[in-house]
Design a binder for these strands. Structure first.
Lengths: 338, 338
DNA sequence: TTCTATTTGGGTAACGATACCAAAGTGAAA
DNA sequence: TTTCACTTTGGTATCGTTACCCAAATAGAA
């Protein structure tokens, strides 16, 4: 095919099709005014030559990249993956490309990522959470593009917000347990504030317990966040040894909850007979494990879908004020809690 | 801060720092020849103004984007996520950015994605699997950049290959079961060839069974790939009803294997007492579930890390011939198989 | 002090597409 | 036929950075 390594440009295509480069440019845009006949001739010529449209030139001249920058804490998390899926499905019809990066739950890394991304001139930027380094915050404020914070409801948003209060969601779970007559409730989570949403959940747990006048000190720290199944199992082992009279455990995520459940299975501890276990996130495993896990569904895909819809509205000028969209997480009661 | 919406350029920074734009450009590259004093002054000036480097212009002029395009079947799969992690960690020190897209196990979608990506002029492109539409294959062949196919060992690679034979990996599992004296072995997988690696695994199962002179017809089709926990559970229900004398089941992935296991738990079928179950992928759940699942570890992270290393070598000109790197998946024997 | 390396900084053109403006072509109405 | 409204095509300059080439400054050697 294209054996010569010389770069082909629209000028080459234009020459072959007997038109001007300008017309070639138009032929490659769906909505522009070229007669269908010439467009087909041009696309044919381009195909014959093996021409590949060069976005880098287009980006510079048109000052549009069609990139939407998205940062998530981890690429290996089904919840965030669902948000990205919702986002990308909403953006695809408009030809917007996601520029995805993960911060590894590290705000310094997030700052670096945001800086790298802004250099690439995205049309908008979506970040996870409402907490950032001061410099990251400043960069976002001055970026001159729509900024959407997700998975949280920060007090002082940078721009748009689509999320929920992690603390309040956990409070709902605690309220439910207390209503069922439980008092000795524990929380399993990471041992730092690195995962800020995880820390918010723990804070929500403590606040809710205190609001009920209950002991909020049954906190099992299970290593550096994000904690997963293994850490959940280890934490449960410690819980069973140090606080054997615990009646229920709320875990920072379904993954740690499932790990905790497996530890009970290994030790012959009956769930929910002797101990209740709940998670967070409504991962697939929560629904299918035996027993199925009570959890909280924050509708990750919706977060993504609504973020996409918002971005399109803002880019279309249909939305000028900063939006604040609250998602209502749903308590999913299953067998692991009675 | 930067209230005016007018775009700042290097010329603005140059004026403020009292140097030429050319020197500003040098100050933003780490290895170029500017005195440390002027560099600091320039960076200070840039920071004062709120200048943000414009990659789009840089990309065009330098004909380098520092993008590595990567397509994976699904963003919601821990195996592929691990590969991406290995990749991005290997590429980060060189300032290479991953441009990630997912095909949803659809070759037509992969073709569209590849076309979109090539327009952005990446330095290299990594694809999952060795099967593509003819047009996608042609585009990759003519892209003029390194192409790496992963997670497979195709007969006719486009360029470089880093992967393993899915069929052969499953054959190892069958061999093990047969050596243990089992003969009635079933396979649970998706019901189309949409997931080509999944289809390869099923083919490997059939070939291995036939090689042993055993009945290879115990194939449970469990819906449109990729199948996950729920489909695994449904398939197991069907298997237990239609072929109750089955001694062992190999599942196309650990997720479906775990789903199958939960169905056994719901029905009181003892695993491994009455039935063995094995998966593929060595997901975290395989190690922690009760019983732990026998599986095959294809070292997804290694695939990514070695792909990154290969890309760097090729870009450095240290590697000119097409590499063919075979990963050896490891059989992980756990409690679910005796 | 003179002269040769070496470092540091500047000028100019170009990367390849498209925004903007203008002209030519087309068909219907007058 | 002429005019007008509209569609289709072309010409030119430009987006913001950097490759390339060269000059000035500085350092070190003789």
């Amino acid at each position: 095919m294209n054996t010569s390594r010389k770069t082909l440009t629209m000028a080459d295509v234009a020459r072959r099709a007997g038109v001007s480069p300008m017309t070639v440019s138009r032929a490659f845009k769906t909505d522009s005014s070229v007669s269908e006949a010439t467009r087909q001739a041009i696309l044919k010529a381009a195909d014959d030559l093996g021409y590949v449209f060069d976005s880098t030139a287009s980006n510079l001249r048109s000052q549009r990249t069609d990139f939407i920058a998205v940062t998530i804490p981890s690429i290996n998390n089904a919840n965030f993956a669902d948000t990205v899926r919702g986002l990308s499905e909403g953006l695809k019809p408009r030809g917007l490309q996601i520029l995805l990066g993960y911060t590894d739950y590290d705000m310094a890394e997030e700052e670096r990522l945001i800086e790298q991304f802004l250099r690439r001139r995205p049309e908008a930027i979506v970040v996870t959470g409402g907490r950032h380094t001061p410099r990251a915050r400043r960069m976002l404020e001055n970026a001159g593009i729509p900024v959407i914070e997700t998975w949280d409801l920060p007090d002082k948003p940078i721009g748009h917000v689509i999320g929920f209060s992690n603390a309040q969601a956990v409070r709902g779970m605690v309220d439910h347990f207390v209503a069922k007559g439980l008092t000795r409730i524990a929380f399993i989570g990471g041992d730092t504030t690195r995962d800020t949403r995880g820390a918010d959940r723990r804070n929500g747990f403590v606040a809710a317990m205190q609001a009920h006048g209950l002991d909020a000190s049954r906190l099992i720290a299970a290593g550096v966040p994000p904690i997963s199944m293994r850490e959940g199992a280890e934490a449960m082992a410690r819980l069973l040894e140090t606080l054997p009279d615990t009646e229920a455990v709320i875990c920072v995520s379904d993954l740690s909850a499932f790990g905790a459940l497996t530890e009970c299975q290994r030790r012959g501890v009956d769930v929910p007979g002797r101990l209740w276990i709940a998670g967070f996130g409504d991962y697939e495993i929560a629904e299918i494990s035996v027993p199925a896990l009570t959890t909280i569904n924050p509708f990750p895909r919706d977060i993504g879908a609504r973020t996409a819809a918002l971005i399109l509205d803002v880019l279309d000028g249909k939305q000028d004020a900063a939006a604040k969209i609250a998602i209502s997480p749903e308590l999913m009661l299953r067998q692991s809690t009675g």
